[in-house]
Design a protein around this nucleic acid. Sequence first.
DNA 1: GCAAAAGTGTTAGACATACACCCATGC
DNA 2: GCATGGGTGTATGTCTAACACTTTTGC
Lengths: 254, 254
Amino acid sequence: MDPKLKAYFESTLKEVSIDCVIFGFHEGELKVLLLKWKGTEGWSLPGGKIYLEESVNDAAVRILQERTGLKEIFLQQFYTFGGNDRYKNMDKAALFRKLEWAFGADFYDEKYMKRHVSLGYMALVEFEQVVATPDWYTDECMWCEISAIPELLFDHNEMVEVALKALRRQLSYQPIGYNLLPEKFTMPELQRLYETILGKQLDRRNFQKLMLSYDILEKLPEKRTGGAFKAPFLYRFDKEKYDRAMREEILFAI
Amino acid sequence: MDPKLKAYFESTLKEVSIDCVIFGFHEGELKVLLLKWKGTEGWSLPGGKIYLEESVNDAAVRILQERTGLKEIFLQQFYTFGGNDRYKNMDKAALFRKLEWAFGADFYDEKYMKRHVSLGYMALVEFEQVVATPDWYTDECMWCEISAIPELLFDHNEMVEVALKALRRQLSYQPIGYNLLPEKFTMPELQRLYETILGKQLDRRNFQKLMLSYDILEKLPEKRTGGAFKAPFLYRFDKEKYDRAMREEILFAI
DNA sequence: GCAAAAGTGTTAGACATACACCCATGC
DNA sequence: GCATGGGTGTATGTCTAACACTTTTGC
């Protein structure tokens, strides 16, 4: 095995790791960042290990930064996966044969390849700002529409589902959008975001009234020009009020 | 060190453990089960380790059963604690001196006393049915009112707070009470439960109307006799409808 | 009879929902 | 001009929230 990889294994927790469901919003679609494992056709969520003296939240921030280049974004734990059958839908032997081919004959070492508990973190990122970067295990990145996710390695399909459910639930008591949209955005864009996450259509006029009633948006004098049809106004989140709404968990009746 | 304890250490995950915030409701008070560590005056939450081939959820069920005698109750993950400073408010050296006194000179073995990631589970139990039982480390159990919890070991005070917050949040999209109340209960008792968890007073008449509107309660012909004043009716949860409401996460506007 | 707890009903107002009309832009 | 998307306003009905009266029970 590569000595650097070995050193990484030695300096990190062995039984615990982190997997991130990184949500981005682009062209009216909610997408998730996936990585393709070297030497295989298998895709997985971005993940990583925790250094011995690192808090798990710090590790999640670090991993997210390594994969997207972004710091200070919305990132939170949503569930911890600790089934003893997390490989159940896979041909584990075949996978590890391929991985040994890519990483060296002693990659599959019992010392490192123990049963893992995985902390699921979800991140909401501004799609345009992400510079997706593969990690040690992987050689390709892909933004995949939430509705067209292929079969993933391990229990990562379940992770995406649980993350999405947590995200939807969160929508009912916290605002969303600050980390998923560019600084300035239009009301229809915000609505599209909500519709995509919730998976249902919303009334244009009622949505606007509701959003404005929460008093977290600032209407700008500018409009989004260039597009076809009537130019919509631009809005911006009032960060202070937005953060307060996040903290106080105001009920968002949507 | 005791060979049985050593064997337990060898057969469990070393970096991960489980801590349980076990809520019970008694005499109009929400209470939490605490354990006192042998040889110390320190209190902590009930917890335990995960066997190598056991899923974390199974481990949580097992630990809960060991401490309360109860099975098939409400139990769920609420957060995973992975700070690298989880001992920060304690005199760690003094604690371990006391523990070595109680467990043997080699209790504090670097091999076992690593940095731990702790999975927080919360349980809602029927107070009357619990037979509280200390574990390996502890020699005393106590039900402690939520408002009068002493300073606990490790980061367990924070755990209780986070659990309580999660419980309150959950109240807004799921019914509660099935596992906290006896089979038959009165509307004022149910209301007291909600008031205790939410930490605020509710209107008697509106509460009743709201609860009945969710169609998960069955009004019984009997009344709670024996008490002073007018005898209140007894109710029972319709388990099927209750479970459906849990699954569908109907919004409980309380 | 009185105080305290419980049962039941009413009413005003807020809010969600549904819907209508006008404006801007490209073809 | 027309199709399409966007801005704004209004009416209706439902549900929440505040509140009143009656009944039961022990002292």
